[in-house]
Amino acid sequence: MTNGEKPQTIRLIDSSQASAARMYDWLLGGTENYEVDRAACRELLKIAPSTQQLARNNRAFLRRVVRFLAAEKKITQFLDHGSGLPTQENVHQVAQGINPNAKVVYVDNDPMVLAHARTHLDDNENTLVIDYDMRRTNDIRNATSRFLDWAKPIAALFVSVLHCLPDADDENDPAALIRNVSAQLAPGSYVVICQLISDDPEVRDGVTRLMDSATGGNWGRVRQPYEVARYFETLEIEDPPGLVDVIDWLPDSPPPPPHMRPTDWVEWGGVGRVCR
């Protein structure tokens, strides 16, 4: 446990089914994955060959957006939903590299993610790791109430995780999740959202079927740009750069020209400000 986190049920790591977090780890060149994850990735690459590059682009976007929020917007509190397995330059490393007092909460319910995060972060008093489904917004707020100051701006991160959530007719819907979190945040807070999108129905349907089967139903849907844009309806979009392929979001170097970009799918989204 970290920083007073309440004891929760210990779940065993299931190595018989692929995990989106472990697949992402493999795509980034990590070693915290099993053959079932690697096999699923190989099948995924057959449908969407640019997947590995997209994973790297997404990780670079995460670093840039945290750096932007910490340095330009002076945000000192970060709530990272679906944080995934630790890799180089995590949110706390980027944010605390700018402000050593920045606080970061990692929210995940993947047993391997939690085990590794706690091992790596146990000696960092400005980080907190909590075991929750990201849709349990009230529980997450309660669990972080003594660690984060909810009366002050917080950056809520939903980076490459909403495609893991299925559509729903209740508060479990991804759009409802964003509305609920945004409503809890203080004015001046930010919400970072990107998810996998495709204009090709064969890619959308093929990836969705593959991932749903490989992960035992722990998957949502590859969506279209207009669907992701709806997540920002209650937010003031940071524009420029607006809602874009993440490779175009305040890039550190010139992005590739159109003829060198993936045509199968991309990570798409941006940053919204809570301004009520």
Rank of each mutant, 00 (worst) to 15 (best):
C41E: 00
R42T: 13
R42Q: 15
E43C: 12
E43L: 13
L44N: 00
L45I: 15
L45T: 14
L45M: 15
K46W: 07
K46R: 14
K46Q: 15
I47K: 04
I47M: 05
I47Y: 00
A48K: 05
P49N: 05
P49W: 02
P49L: 01
P49Y: 05
S50G: 14
T51N: 06
T51V: 11
Q52F: 08
Q52M: 15
Q52N: 12
Q52G: 14
A55S: 15
A55P: 04
R56D: 11
R56F: 09
N58D: 08
N58Q: 08
N58H: 07
N58P: 05
R59F: 07
R59G: 01
F61M: 11
F61C: 09
L62N: 01
V65K: 03
V66H: 02
V66L: 08
R67G: 08
R67I: 03
F68Q: 11
L69F: 11
A70G: 09
A71H: 13
K73W: 11
K74M: 08
I75N: 05
I75Q: 08
Q77G: 06
F78Y: 11
F78V: 08
L79V: 04
D80Y: 01
D80N: 05
D80R: 03
H81T: 02
H81F: 15
G82I: 06
G82R: 02
G82S: 08
G82N: 04
G84T: 00
P86N: 07
P86M: 03
P86Q: 06
E89N: 15
H92L: 12
H92G: 10
H92R: 13
Q93W: 13
Q93T: 13
Q93E: 15
V94A: 06
A95Q: 00
A95F: 03
Q96W: 08
G97F: 09
I98K: 10
N99V: 12
P100Q: 12
N101T: 11
A102I: 01
K103V: 03
K103L: 09
V105L: 07
Y106I: 10
V107T: 01
V107D: 01
D108W: 10
N109W: 00
D110E: 10
D110Y: 04
D110F: 02
D110G: 03
P111Y: 12
V113P: 00
A115K: 13
H116F: 09
H116T: 12
A117D: 06
R118M: 08
R118Q: 12
T119P: 02
T119Y: 11
T119Q: 13
H120P: 00
L121D: 01
D122C: 01
D123I: 10
N124F: 07
E125L: 11
N126W: 07
D131W: 01
D131E: 14
M134R: 00
R135H: 05
R136D: 10
R136A: 09
T137M: 10
T137S: 13
T137F: 11
T137V: 14
R141M: 03
N142I: 08
T144H: 04
S145I: 13
S145Y: 09
R146L: 10
R146Q: 12
R146F: 06
W150C: 08
A151E: 12
A151C: 06
A151L: 04
K152E: 12
P153Q: 11
P153D: 09
I154D: 03
I154P: 01
A156T: 07
A156H: 05
L157R: 00
L157A: 03
F158Q: 05
V159P: 05
H163A: 09
H163M: 07
H163W: 07
H163I: 06
C164W: 02
L165T: 06
A168I: 09
A168C: 12
D169H: 15
